[in-house]
Design a protein around this nucleic acid. Structure first.
Length: 270
DNA sequence: CTAAGGACCTGTCGGC
DNA sequence: TGCCGACAGGTCCTTA
């Protein structure tokens, strides 16, 4: 799935197709996502008009005057706009149908995603404890450094902790640490404020680049119009075990950290 | 409180 | 060709 850039790309892709549209139906074919789709969601959406689409962390918020639908894409989810006469395929779990015979269709083979309703989504239990947005000004080296003071976990696990900073998934964690020259095995509380500042800049740059490129496509993500993103070719370490480092030619290493594959250059990252 | 590991699911790929 | 295990972009929950 979708790391933050893909979610942002999805938000941008669907917004012009859904904002100001009136919903005529919500078709639910499979309610067993990560959480059971609540029974009242149809009632909350039908005959209502979408005001805006926002993003908090990797959650998409479909905003109405009386509350918000919360959508998460999990590992394998995607959203796209369809014509209502397009037959549903396997794993197309729900459609939000609009008055003009288009629909927002959600597909998620692994069903790790979510479709929820909240009158006040930012206070929802899944969102209330989330940390800083990486692309906003309050995400600084100073902030990261202070938060890391009592943390003995690796820096890679630290930046993937959504209670600290949101939106840094497994791909971009490796990519950001490579760009910052920091070894992913290093303990979070053993990194200077100066290097934390470099890491923050690296994260912002990597995520912005990926958003500009339209998001990374590996297997499951398609932009809402169905065409593939193309950031994959810009990855410098992720998925490149044994391939030469783009900077020094030394073979890229792979190690499992916190149950996730981690890629890095032993010569360039300390 | 922090940290570690399991859990949730299906599809795909490599090896034999 | 067929089967089997390993692995995949997330993140919550339980246990220590």
């Amino acid at each position: 799935m979708p790391e933050l850039p893909e979610v942002e790309t999805t938000k941008i892709g669907i917004t012009p197709w859904v904002v100001n549209k009136e919903i005529t139906d919500v078709i639910i074919r499979e309610k067993r996502l990560r959480y059971k789709i609540p029974g009242n969601i149809k009632k909350q959406l039908i005959n209502k008009r979408i005001i805006s689409v926002k993003r908090r962390a990797k959650y998409l918020l479909i905003n109405f005057s009386h509350g918000s639908a919360i959508i998460h894409l999990g590992m394998s989810g995607s959203l796209r706009i369809i014509k209502t006469n397009e037959p549903a395929r396997k794993h197309d779990h729900f459609d939000i149908v609009f008055i003009d015979d288009t629909a927002l269709r959600y597909r998620d083979p692994r069903r790790f995603g979510a479709f929820l309703w909240s009158e006040n989504p930012l206070s929802h239990r899944l969102l209330i404890k989330l940390g800083q947005e990486p692309l906003q000004e309050k995400f600084t080296g100073e902030y990261l450094w202070k938060e890391a003071k009592n943390r003995r976990i690796t820096i890679k696990q630290f930046i993937m902790n959504a209670n600290i900073v949101v939106g840094v998934g497994n791909i971009y964690a490796s990519e950001s640490l490579f760009l910052a020259g920091i070894n992913p095995n290093r303990k979070a509380n053993r990194i200077s404020k100066k290097r934390m500042e470099g890491l923050v800049q690296a994260i912002k740059l990597i995520l912005n680049d990926a958003i500009k490129a339209g998001g990374t496509t590996l297997q499951d993500f398609y932009m809402s119009d169905g065409s593939a993103g193309y950031f994959k070719q810009k990855l410098k370490v992720y998925g490149r075990e044994k391939h030469p480092c783009v900077s020094c030619k030394f073979p890229i290493s792979m190690k499992v950290i916190g149950q996730r594959s981690t890629f890095y250059c032993k010569k360039c990252q300390s």
